[in-house]
């Protein structure tokens, strides 16, 4: 199930970050916010009307758009 991305997860799912396929600016921002391959990530909720998603990495809650979430591949655990 390596084709999964953060965008395909459902609320309550916990997964492990495999890889971040993002351009440099986004990549750096994500790294600074604690996104690293091997880290656990939990999807907390999705906003209505295809809005952003809320995830938890470590102790931090972060929101990002689904288009950006699609660039982060994960493995469900």
């Amino acid at each position: 199930m390596s084709a999964n991305t953060l965008a395909t997860m459902h609320p309550g799912d916990i997964a492990t970050i495999l890889h971040i396929h993002a351009e440099e600016a986004l990549h750096k921002r994500l790294l600074a916010l604690g996104f690293r391959s091997g880290k656990k990530i939990e999807l907390i909720r999705k906003a209505s009307f295809s809005g952003p998603i809320q995830v938890r990495v470590g102790t931090t809650d972060i929101m990002l758009r689904r288009s950006e979430a699609a660039k982060i591949s994960v493995e469900k655990s």
Partner: peptide
């Protein structure tokens, strides 16, 4: 806007 829309949700 070229900045990624990734925001913290602080407590």
């Amino acid at each position: 806007n070229t900045e990624p829309f990734v925001l913290e949700l602080p407590p």
